[in-house]
């Protein structure tokens, strides 16, 4: 096929490939997690964030943003949740946790590891979700009654995800 003069050629760089690979891994975890039955809507382990944490530590915040947002959008497409309420909750939580991670990476690495990043991101995630839920889905202060449940889930799953991410990066030297 002869390339026409108007054809736009996309040349994915090595960075693009890496983002795609990590996003794919995160999407697999999202889909796998959707199969786990959970007692309360909104409380889930967030295993895909392990990938975000690893990308953050190894490749920086910008790449973590790419991976996390691709995961939210494609994960919702795969699960048939795209543009449904759950999608906006995920998006709000994802954006809030990315902001938290953007701040948390600047904490001294020697003292604050992936576990700190993970717990802070988990808290930001549920806070972002809760704000959207309060404003849009459940316009009543009753949603805040669940704050202690979400906070406990964020602590436990934040710790577990952070530890898993830290162990995956065991051989990274100082990271």
């Amino acid at each position: 096929m002869t390339p026409s003069a108007t054809e736009i050629e996309l040349r994915p760089s090595a960075d693009d490939h890496r983002v795609a690979r990590h996003a794919a891994a995160a999407i697999v975890l999202t889909v796998a997690e959707a199969a786990i039955p959970l007692p309360l809507p909104g409380v889930k382990p967030g295993l895909a964030n392990i990938v975000t944490l690893v990308v953050l530590a190894r490749w920086g915040w910008r790449e973590a943003v790419w991976v996390a947002l691709l995961r939210v959008i494609v994960g919702s497409l795969v699960l048939g949740q795209f543009l449904a309420p759950g999608f906006f909750l995920s998006l709000a939580g994802g954006l809030a946790s990315l902001v938290a991670l953007g701040v948390a990476v600047h904490l001294p690495r020697r003292v604050f590891g992936p576990v700190s990043h993970s717990v802070l991101a988990a808290f930001a995630h549920f806070a972002g979700q809760l704000v959207v839920a309060r404003i849009w889905l459940v316009p009543h202060d009753g949603v805040f009654y669940l704050v202690p449940v979400f906070a406990l889930a964020a602590t436990v799953f934040g710790l577990v995800n952070g530890l898993v991410a830290a162990r995956l990066m065991e051989d990274d030297g100082a990271a």
């Binding site: 003292v111 604050f112 590891g113 717990v119 952070g162 162990r167």
Partner: peptide, 16 residues
Amino acid sequence: HLRAGDLLVLGLAVGV
């Protein structure tokens, strides 16, 4: 894999 700051963050989280 828990660093000093991580324990601080976890303590704050439990406090919240």
